[in-house]
Amino acid sequence: MSDRQYMRVRADMPPGHVRTPAYLRGKCGWVERTLGPFPNPEALAYGLQAQALPLMRMRFSMTEVWGAAAANPNDTIDAEIYSHWLEPAEAPHAP
């Protein structure tokens, strides 16, 4: 994954309908692939006009997400994150 973009999920905790799981907020991962654009569910949920956004399939290491509690550091979690929840991050050495 070393040639992929490395990004951090924003650590925001807003109320309301969002599709970014709390356990991934503030965590960094690699862009596994780019999807979309897809309309923003945070607007669709309220019947509002929704902006189309890129959707990133992010890959996180278990260690990044759970720290020392990760039983198998090489295992991974993939999740789709809308682009407005992502910010650039400095890449560590390639996993």
């Binding site: 309301g16 309908h17 569910p41 669709l44 949920a45 309220y46 019947g47």
Partner: peptide, 8 residues
């Protein structure tokens, strides 16, 4: 409505 509205 949308599936997002259902979930909300």
């Amino acid at each position: 409505f949308t599936v997002d509205g259902l979930r909300r």
